[in-house]
Simulated scan of single mutants.
Amino acid sequence: MDEYPLLNLFWTMLWLFLWVLWFFLLFKVITDIFRDHSLGGWGKAGWLVLVLLLPYIGVLIYLIARGRSMGERDVKQAKENDEAFRHYVRNAAGPAGPSAAEELSKLSALKDKGDITPEEFAQAKQRLLS
Rank of each mutant, 00 (worst) to 15 (best):
M1Y: 01
D2W: 03
E3H: 04
L6G: 07
L7R: 10
N8M: 12
N8D: 13
L9F: 10
T12N: 12
M13T: 07
L16C: 13
F17H: 06
W22A: 15
L26H: 03
L26K: 03
F27G: 10
F27N: 04
F27Q: 04
D32I: 00
D32Y: 00
D36T: 08
D36R: 06
D36N: 07
D36A: 14
L39C: 11
L39V: 09
G40A: 14
G40N: 10
G40V: 13
G41W: 05
W42I: 15
G43S: 11
K44W: 13
K44C: 13
G46E: 09
W47C: 07
L48Y: 01
V49L: 15
V51M: 11
L52V: 14
L53G: 05
L53Y: 04
L54S: 05
P55A: 15
Y56R: 11
V59W: 00
I61T: 08
Y62K: 04
L63E: 08
L63I: 11
G67P: 02
S69Q: 05
S69W: 01
E72W: 01
D74E: 04
V75W: 10
K76V: 10
Q77M: 06
Q77H: 01
Q77I: 15
K79E: 09
K79I: 15
N81P: 00
D82Y: 03
E83G: 03
E83L: 13
A84K: 01
A84R: 02
F85Y: 02
F85T: 12
R86M: 14
H87G: 12
V89E: 12
R90G: 04
N91G: 11
A92W: 10
A92K: 06
P95R: 11
G97I: 03
A100R: 11
E103Y: 04
E103L: 14
L104G: 03
S105Y: 02
L107P: 00
L110I: 10
K111L: 14
D112S: 10
K113I: 15
G114Q: 06
I116M: 08
P118F: 00
P118K: 01
E120H: 00
F121D: 07
A122Y: 00
Q123H: 04
K125G: 01
Q126Y: 06
